[in-house]
């Protein structure tokens, strides 16, 4: 496990694998660096503790928040919205992307439109979503759906296109019908990539839910952050930001772990 002294310079050679312990160590060092930077900025004589509160105050704020009634209902509300919007998007975008990737006429008909729609910034859709869906749960779910559906459909289509044509040919010479090629070859072959695309969309969905909640909501992580701002409760804001980051990190790792576990066969071709 130990490295030769001259191996240190070798570590910076392109694409050299890193020992596990060093990987974890460096990751921790990155976080420690952030904390250090925060402490340093907080200790500067020109710092106003309202801007950069001392860490103890964040810790006490965290204690009060975690034992209070609002926190868990906020998490539950945001989590529910993201899950509902994302599931809906997956449900429709995966078959749609499969068709775009598999059939040229569908690609020609829909891809340019979808490309256009995905570049409409999601926050700009909020007014129109509110006009259509009001300010209830439906509006937030609709916003997440709109924000992820088009992106996901195009990413799925790209993954489907990346399944080698030779595999399609092989399946055809074995007697596969069009439907079987779609389900047994294109979908199966694209599945690891699709899961990865859903992971990315999940990250974006969390941004959208926070934006939506800041505009119209009575609970949720985004709503609460804005409320803390009204009362200039900086420590509380930092607690919620940490929570948002941790949720994102945890879900991302979960998706990666699923992908690695479920699609071990893809290891050699991906990553």
């Amino acid at each position: 496990m130990s490295l030769q002294p001259n191996a240190w310079s070798h570590l910076l050679a392109v694409r050299t694998p890193l020992p596990r312990w060093l990987h974890v160590g460096l990751a921790c060092l990155g976080f420690a660096g952030c904390v250090g930077l925060y402490l340093w900025a907080g200790a500067r004589p020109d710092n106003n503790p309202t801007f950069i509160p001392p860490i103890e105050r964040i810790a006490t704020a965290a204690q009060t928040i975690l034992s209070g009634p609002d926190f868990w209902s906020d998490v539950r509300a945001s989590f529910g919205r993201v899950t509902a919007g994302l599931l809906l998007a997956v449900l429709f975008a995966v078959p749609f992307g499969l068709w775009i990737g598999a059939f040229r006429p569908i690609e020609a008909l829909t891809q340019p439109v979808v490309e256009f729609l995905r570049y409409v910034p999601v926050p700009a859709l909020i007014p129109i979503v509110m006009i259509f869906f009001g300010i209830g749960e439906g509006a937030k779910i609709a916003l997440i759906f709109l924000g992820t559906f088009f992106q996901l459909a195009l990413m799925v289509a790209e993954e489907v296109r990346r399944v080698p044509n030779d595999l399609v040919h092989a399946a055809q010479t074995l007697g596969a019908s069009r439907g079987e090629i779609l389900s047994l070859v294109l979908f199966r072959g694209a599945l690891p990539g699709i899961l990865d695309a859903v992971r990315l969309c999940n990250g974006w969905a969390w941004s959208y839910v926070v934006v939506a909640e800041m505009i119209a909501a009575t609970e949720g992580l985004g709503f609460r952050v804005l409320r803390f701002y009204r009362f200039i409760q900086t420590p509380n804001i930092f607690v919620y930001l940490l929570v948002l980051g941790l949720i994102g990190l945890a879900l991302d790792q979960l998706f990666r772990a699923c992908n690695a576990r479920l699609f071990r066969w893809a290891d050699a071709t991906r990553r």
Partner: peptide, 8 residues
């Protein structure tokens, strides 16, 4: 000519 097994 190329390898065409289904990798999954």
């Amino acid at each position: 000519q190329n390898y065409t097994l289904f990798p999954w």
